[in-house]
Amino acid sequence: MSVILREPIGVIGVVTPWNYPLLMAPWKIAPILAAGDTLVIKPSEQTPLTTLEFAELVADLLPAGVLNVVNGYGFVVGARLAEHPDVSMIALTGSVAAGRAVARAAADTLKRVHLELGGKAPVVIFPDADLAAAASSLRVAGFWNSGQECGAACRVLVHESVAEQFVEQLVGEVQALVVGEPASGEDVEVGPMVSKAHFDRVTGYLERAKKEGIGVATGGGAIDGPGYFVAPTVLVDVPEGAEVAREEIFGPVVTVETFTDEEEAVRRATDVPLGLSASVWTEKARRSHDIAASPDFGTVWVNSHLVLAREVPWGGFKGSGYGRDLLIHALDDFSRTKHVMHNHGR
């Protein structure tokens, strides 16, 4: 008689990012505790306070030692969690570089690794698409959280026959965005970059794009005045293979490229090292099924973008990592199966 048991893994080390500190912590904490594990979580050194407050709020609900928060830099505390022999698994949401470092550090102890890394989400727009709806969607999906979002709609591939019309509509939406300090009013839609270092990184991409001759339809640089504000930007006439079209900028920047046919659209959409999410815009049902099934991305939206639901898994392919967050898929990742076989012959 065979019995399959699902068991906790043990102690899970967790490293969470700065862009959604309070959201990303429960994404890991909930399935880890539900699977029967304990955890040590290190929030980003840039945004640790909400995780600490969360731990205080639930301190009287959990046994001592089940949920532990440690603070520090990734290259010190995060590295120690990844390499520690008593940590059975390491889970990270962060950059591709951080994911590589964690995987290398975990290799010596052969611990399990769960990585949710960056993205460079293509938005493929066909001639029959509802252009106004696509432009309106990108107003949010491309600039939510000031573009500091791994699933952001940051790379548009639009059919050449409707490119000019779409860009005009997109620019109108982007120029209507309200930029400001988040606490200055409920109408503010785009805030500053998280830090001076990240501000310099984002503006560096824009400066290099201009030197390469890439066009700027709107925005294109920092906003004058105090704070690390970058103007919501749309870059146009972006050539295939350009740096801004392949690398994750992680700021309020959307690039626009054009394509001539379906085959080219799919090839160029997938010709990036990251594979977290993508969207396809078309009114043709057969095309929407075929195209959505073919790109190498963990989530593909059809006629929408950045619509998240807790009932479905979230995670990527290729350079965007491996492992899944949310629902039963996360429970699978944070537990292990054991086969017990009984010989009941007499």
Rank of each mutant, 00 (worst) to 15 (best):
G147E: 12
K111E: 10
H114S: 15
A152Q: 10
N145Q: 08
N145K: 10
G99C: 05
K120A: 04
E149A: 14
N145C: 07
H114A: 11
D130N: 15
A97H: 04
A133H: 03
G142K: 02
A105M: 10
T109L: 06
V113D: 03
G119M: 09
A129M: 10
K111M: 12
A101R: 15
W144C: 03
T109K: 13
A101C: 00
R100P: 01
P122Y: 09
G147P: 07
A107L: 11
A106N: 09
A141H: 09
E116N: 02
V113M: 05
A132E: 15
G147K: 08
I125F: 03
F143T: 08
V102C: 01
H114I: 00
A134W: 00
A121P: 03
A107K: 09
P127C: 08
A152M: 06
P122D: 13
V123I: 15
P122Q: 12
S136M: 00
V140E: 01
V102Y: 00
D108P: 05
P127M: 13
W144G: 02
A152N: 05
R104N: 06
H114P: 00
G142A: 04
L131D: 06
C150M: 10
R104S: 11
G151I: 14
G119F: 10
A98N: 13
A129T: 11
W144I: 13
A106P: 07
S136R: 15
A107F: 05
A103D: 05
S136A: 15
R100Q: 14
S137H: 00
E149Y: 12
Q148W: 05
V123G: 00
A106V: 11
F126C: 07
H114Q: 11
V140F: 11
K120V: 03
A129W: 04
A141F: 05
L110V: 15
A152W: 05
K111L: 08
L117I: 07
G118D: 10
G142S: 04
E149S: 14
K111D: 12
A135V: 02
A105I: 09
L138V: 04
R112G: 12
S137I: 04
P127Q: 14
G142P: 02
L117K: 05
C150E: 08
R104I: 12
D130G: 05
R100Y: 03
V123M: 14
L110Y: 10
V113W: 03
V124F: 00
C150F: 06
P122A: 13
A133Y: 01
A106F: 11
D130K: 05
G147Y: 05
H114G: 00
N145D: 06
R112I: 04
A107T: 11
A105W: 07
A97D: 15
A132N: 12
A103F: 00
G119T: 11
A101P: 01
R104A: 15
L110P: 04
A132R: 14
E116L: 03
E116Y: 02
V113Q: 04
N145L: 07
R100M: 06
G119I: 10
A101W: 02
E149N: 15
R100F: 01
G118P: 10
A107W: 07
A133E: 05
G142T: 04
G147T: 08
A97P: 01
A134Q: 01
V124G: 01
W144M: 14
G142Y: 01
L110Q: 08
D130S: 05
P127E: 14
G119C: 12
E116H: 02
V102R: 02
E149L: 14
G119N: 12
A107H: 06
A101I: 07
A107E: 10
S146G: 04
T109H: 13
I125M: 09
G119V: 12
E116S: 02
